[in-house]
Design a protein around this nucleic acid. Structure first.
Length: 414
RNA sequence: GUGGCUGUAGCUCAGUUGGUUAGAGCACCAGAUUGUGGAUCUGGGGGCCGGGGGUUCAAGUCCCCUCAGCCACCCCA
């Protein structure tokens, strides 16, 4: 029979990877908790509208990357491609507007049907933080500071840099978009095919094209910062000052734009050079219009998401599993006794490994293989005396102790 | 979706201009050691050479298709 394969772009988290992922989530959740961001979990699929209407009808995510299907009841459902729209929907569905401001932490799988590469799978995992209900720059500063703290706690801060930009308010965006499109149309013959397409669908995207020709055109393009309203400009200034106060370094990158329609004002990305073309490790921004767009009360929001697979590739070493204590019974009576002993020691908080087969030598080898801290060896001799042999597997020292001393002795070892 | 590179044991890889029964290291299993692990030695199990088709007396090797991974683009976390 042919070896079964996972679906393209998906992969199993085998124990080493699973541990690394869990550790990243646990670290992030701990930091988020200190900032007042507490867990929320939304369904993995939603009505297609939740994403189609909010991410932008022309965005790549909506037009070609969503896993959408018709439910047996006739509804169009979609596996979530990102978390923010789901959380906004949950906020509205749950009638949470009276509890503002709200801070949420979420983690879980997301789905986008892209061509797989390293750091880019069709099912991938994100951690996500959202702050809903704070309209002032405090929110932007807090959310970025949280991101910074999480990356620091994961030990990857020295490998990333923060790119910062403002998309302005609606008025600023409309004004800038107008002059940009006008400029680009004048230079359309110099643009790449991709950018001509972008010009129709999402003109701001031309700004961060990697094509050399496009870059030259962009050099001479009008700058978004010149078209900000006074209010939008002041808002961004306050965000920058707040980051300065916290000593968080950033580069203002006026060519950085967002792929999803609902963003406004502050946009930010933590990027790295260590992951090839998938340089974005954590990204987010403000989405003041999103909740109203979805039919909820006009409510500001800001948040970010980070790819766990990408973080995992940067985190130095996955944490080692705890070292167990190995039980090594000799003989049938001892084997039966081992099950009871294991339950009691586990109940006392110890990690216990038992090999169910093999002679003493084999079981000792297994103890070594699972990196046990110590082995408890016992057969008829010891049991008659009410004792066990306790062998320190690091030093090789072995002593016989009373069974009722075990818990105490082992606690001192691990 | 576009272009390119690569698929040989669980892992990392050899495999000559096409030529007997496809190899190594590590890992795994067992024995040397029937109450003592790591080291050593000995032996063993493991491969539709990614899959399918073609050329040939003969294909791991050449050609085509396909699947998957990787790299870049696109896009994005």
């Amino acid at each position: 029979m042919k070896k079964p394969q996972p679906v393209r772009g998906t992969h199993d988290l085998l124990p080493g990877d699973a541990r690394a992922h869990a550790a990243i989530v646990a670290t992030a959740q701990g930091i988020a908790g200190r900032h007042g961001y507490h867990p929320i979990a939304t369904p993995i699929f939603e009505f297609t509208d939740v994403f189609a209407r909010t991410l932008g009808e022309t965005s790549d995510v909506v037009t070609k990357e969503m896993y959408s299907f018709e439910d047996k009841g006739g509804d169009s459902l979609t596996l979530r491609p990102e978390g923010t729209a789901s959380i906004a929907r949950a906020f509205i569905s749950g009638g949470l507007q009276q509890d503002l401001p709200l801070r949420f932490f979420m983690s879980g799988p997301m789905f986008r049907r892209e061509r797989p590469q390293k750091g880019r799978q069709r099912q991938f995992h994100q951690i996500d933080a959202e702050l809903i209900g704070v309209a002032t720059p405090h929110a932007d500063i807090e959310v970025i500071a949280l991101a910074d703290a999480v990356l620091d706690a994961l030990g990857v801060k020295q490998d990333v840099s923060l790119e910062l930009n403002t998309l302005g308010d609606t008025e600023s965006r409309e004004a800038y978009r107008g002059v940009l499109v006008e400029y680009l149309r004048d230079h359309v013959s110099e643009l790449s095919d991709d950018s001509r397409d972008r010009l129709e669908r999402n003109p701001l995207r031309v700004l961060d094209s990697k094509n050399q020709q496009d870059k030259q055109v962009v050099e001479g393009a009008p700058k978004s910062s010149d078209y900000l309203t006074a209010a939008a400009s002041d808002f961004f200034g306050a965000v920058c000052e707040g980051l300065n106060d916290l000593g968080i370094a950033y580069n203002i990158n006026t060519r950085m734009v967002r792929g999803l329609d609902y963003y406004c004002h502050t946009a930010f990305e933590f990027v790295t050079a260590r992951l090839g073309a998938q340089g974005t490790v954590l990204a987010g921004g403000r989405y003041d219009g999103l909740i109203e767009l979805m039919g909820g009360p006009s409510t500001p929001g800001i948040g970010w998401a980070a790819g766990i697979e990408r973080l995992a590739m940067m985190v130095a070493a996955p944490p080692a599993p705890p070292r167990p204590i190995a039980l090594v019974p000799v003989g049938g009576a001892a084997e039966r006794r081992a099950m009871v002993m294991a339950r009691d020691l586990r109940a006392a908080g110890l990690s216990i490994d038992i090999a169910y087969s093999g002679n003493l030598s084999r079981r000792m080898k297994r103890a070594n293989k699972v990196n046990a801290r110590a082995a408890i060896v016992f057969g008829d001799d010891e049991l008659e005396r009410g004792g066990v042999s306790l062998r320190d597997l690091d030093s090789g020292e072995q002593i016989e102790i009373k069974q009722d001393e075990l818990e105490h002795r082992l606690a001192a070892l691990v």
